[in-house]
Design a protein around this nucleic acid. Sequence first.
DNA 1: CTATTTATGTGAAAAATATCACAAAAGACT
DNA 2: AGTCTTTTGTGATATTTTTCACATAAATAG
Lengths: 209, 209
Amino acid sequence: MANKSCIIRLSRYRNALMRLKALNFVKVFSENLADAARVTAAQVRKDFSLFGISGNRRGGYLVEELLEQINRVLGKDKLQKFIVVGVGNIGRALLNYPGFKKNEIELVAGFDIDASKHNREAEVPIFLLEELNDFVKDNGIKFGIISVPDFAAQQILELMIQTGIRGILNFAPICLKEPEDCVIRNLNFETELENIIYFTNVTEKTEVR
Amino acid sequence: MANKSCIIRLSRYRNALMRLKALNFVKVFSENLADAARVTAAQVRKDFSLFGISGNRRGGYLVEELLEQINRVLGKDKLQKFIVVGVGNIGRALLNYPGFKKNEIELVAGFDIDASKHNREAEVPIFLLEELNDFVKDNGIKFGIISVPDFAAQQILELMIQTGIRGILNFAPICLKEPEDCVIRNLNFETELENIIYFTNVTEKTEVR
DNA sequence: CTATTTATGTGAAAAATATCACAAAAGACT
DNA sequence: AGTCTTTTGTGATATTTTTCACATAAATAG
């Protein structure tokens, strides 16, 4: 079965393919995608084989066709709607991030407990937290982003699950537990920076000798 | 040798320990940390053993002591300074993110090619891109964050490396190549969301049968 | 039309990572 | 002081993930 890294790689291949398509490329080889995603060519082919994606021996892959197949795997054949709970620094940045729209991902609304952030008229409207339940149910939203402070995260999680949300990206700096039949990815900026700090120091040390 | 996931886990243990410390906890067991980081207790102990971190048989670990040891591994025994290149949505959100300060990470300056974002007087000053080289060299900065649009990322990377930066977190939606003796972590919001979409759909499907 | 070249697709092998399971240490209890 | 209980620390084992290597298919050249 596909694991997380495998799906990350598929996203990266897709990314590269989109660029190639924009440049009117027709064919691509596993080697090229490997370069773009910083992996080996064998890995690319193994990944494809896992999803029954196949190309042409000696001929590589057709960009258009491959893209379509990856899109199907990644659920990019239809628009996926997310809501954002917590319109602070990060929440706002995400809501304004222009990269999503062109990739079948749409952040359709923000929610915040603070009434001063409330704004029904904005391009992406910001509602009060109380309105979350109705909005999610009325619009059949399946995905959400948590960008509230750590102390509120667990409670927001429970609320989101109750409303019917099934996939969550959590930016709050606390590791949320994945409930049954729900997917959570915990992403923490500090942790990311600490990773960089650690490996930069290790690299330096090994470089010396 | 320690791998990336291992360091992520250490960060999570640390996070939990900070909370425990704030609650005046003195002791902690591998089991507790496992719960906090969503892993097994054996994993926690294995991770510690890798870094020669040890506790007391039957007595668990002393919160204070353990925290100190993890801090040493993660380079938290001194303040680590980062600069941010690209003061758009994400760059600005990071610069304003309050979580870093209390954890020995400081974003000390932003840089942008757009003069209208220039602001020497802000709490965290925003300089022109031209000033990057001098600033990094004068202040001995080792770490940076890239939050520019995709088309500019490669060029900014090269510039940053030239100035002497050795560890980079890249938010631009393109997979940057790690040059010799430099550490890069590529983080892409879309990719993260695509991951959630995929696994949420898979979970649903497996739930059905 | 045959030989040659070049990529794919995939079992088999290797490497990396996580779990198990249990001996050893140390506090607790009698 | 001795027994019991609990939790660590870690080899051994299992699992997961990646890489290798090569048979296979298709295009091209002679």
